[in-house]
């Protein structure tokens, strides 16, 4: 037993020595950690990938590198061999995709299959779409002092601070590629002169296909239905400005004769910040209720035409529609869906 242990020890040490000097070892300062990845596809049918790398030698400085290739994975490989440091994609926080590429349904699917299955790129990286030239946008961003937290914070302000900004991660997009009953909104951003990014609303995706663009205020409603986030924001009604203190949503789904129906009640508590002389409480409440209901109904009609279930009503019907029929939710049931959306506002 004693001899055996000793021989094993030697064996272990030998194998360790053998293993030394190997594969994953690379000091952290010899790695480049890209923060943002931009993917675009110009008319020349080649992918163009742009990365921003923080330069650790000089504090706060970033640099931008670009490469073209046949596929995203190929470009990432090329970049890896071209840059002097080893590029470690594991810290990518944001993936910016230009609008023409995002509109291409097949490319989008292919790309997210790759992004999800890639071992390097974290599936919690945020996804955003932009209309601008990505390279120019990147140089503007780096001028504003780009850092990891700045991006993260931009998209994660919290519902209490900026209710209209939403975030979408790779895994959520990936999930949407397959989901029968749920669609998502991917934020659309622009560059700006004095802030890192500017939020421009969202693109609505149906199984990886962009079907519509919605404005930030519409985005709020989406967030409300998808995540049941409280809306805490100010709303200007022209003759009065109110502040929504608290909100709370109730959905009651039912299905009769293959026609799905949802009774949706939104309860909000408001306080009036300022108002014109002689405006009564009930007027403000009526106006607000009408306004939100109209906003929702307009939007809902549009999504029904697009057959995109952005509000996630399908989730409510997962038990009510036989599973084998669920995949036809968007085409068969959703256009027939009747939503009775009522807003009940009360004063605080």
């Amino acid at each position: 037993m004693e001899r055996l242990n000793l021989s094993k020890l030697i064996f272990a040490l030998l194998s360790l020595i053998l293993l030394c000097g190997c594969w994953d070892i690379k000091a952290i300062n010899e790695r480049s950690l890209p923060l943002v990845m931009g993917i675009s596809k110009k008319n020349d049918e080649k992918y163009q990938v742009t990365l921003t790398l923080p330069v650790t030698r000089v504090k706060g400085k970033t640099r931008i590198i670009t490469e073209k290739g046949e596929s995203v994975s190929e470009v990432l490989g090329q970049l890896r061999s071209n840059v002097e440091d080893a590029i470690d994609y594991s810290q990518i926080r944001l993936i910016l995709i230009d609008a023409p590429l995002a509109a291409n349904h097949l490319e989008w699917r292919k790309m997210f299959h790759y992004l999800m299955s890639s071992k390097d790129i974290p599936s919690i990286a945020l996804v955003a779409i932009t209309d601008e030239n990505i390279e120019q946008m990147f140089s503007k961003m780096s001028k504003q002092g780009l850092s990891g937290t700045a991006l993260y914070d931009f998209f994660n302000k919290g519902a209490g601070w900026a209710p209209d900004v939403s975030n979408t991660r790779i895994w959520e997009v990936y999930q949407n590629l397959f989901s029968y009953t749920n669609d998502i909104a991917v934020p659309v951003v622009h560059s700006s002169e004095d802030t890192i990014l500017k939020f421009k609303g969202s693109a609505v995706l149906k199984n990886g296909k962009v079907t519509a663009n919605i404005s930030p205020s519409e985005n709020q409603l989406v967030r409300l239905f998808q995540h049941h986030h409280f809306i805490r924001n100010t709303e200007n009604l022209g003759f009065a400005t109110i502040f929504v203190v608290n909100s709370h949503l109730k959905n009651k789904p039912s299905i009769t004769n293959h026609i799905p129906q949802v009774a949706s009640d939104l309860f909000i508590k408001i306080s009036i910040l300022e108002r014109d002389e002689g405006v009564s409480n009930s007027l403000v409440i009526d106006e607000l209720e009408k306004r939100i209901e109209k906003r929702f109904n307009d939007m809902f009609k549009q999504t029904q035409i697009n057959k995109t279930d952005i509000f996630g009503f399908g989730q409510l019907f997962r038990t009510r529609i036989p599973y084998d029929d669920l995949h036809s939710w968007r085409d068969k049931y959703y256009p027939k869906l009747i939503v009775n959306f009522r807003v009940h506002a009360t004063m605080e």
Binding site: D24, A27, I28, N29, L33, T56, D120
Partner: peptide
């Protein structure tokens, strides 16, 4: 964390460590 698995660190911490190690000739 400095040689094999910097990927598990939050980006700011990773950059902070990278900056503190900048210009040091010895391997971690």
């Amino acid at each position: 964390l400095t040689t094999v698995n910097p990927d598990v660190l939050k980006i700011d911490l990773a950059l902070f460590i990278a900056e503190s190690r900048e210009g040091i000739p010895l391997t971690p």
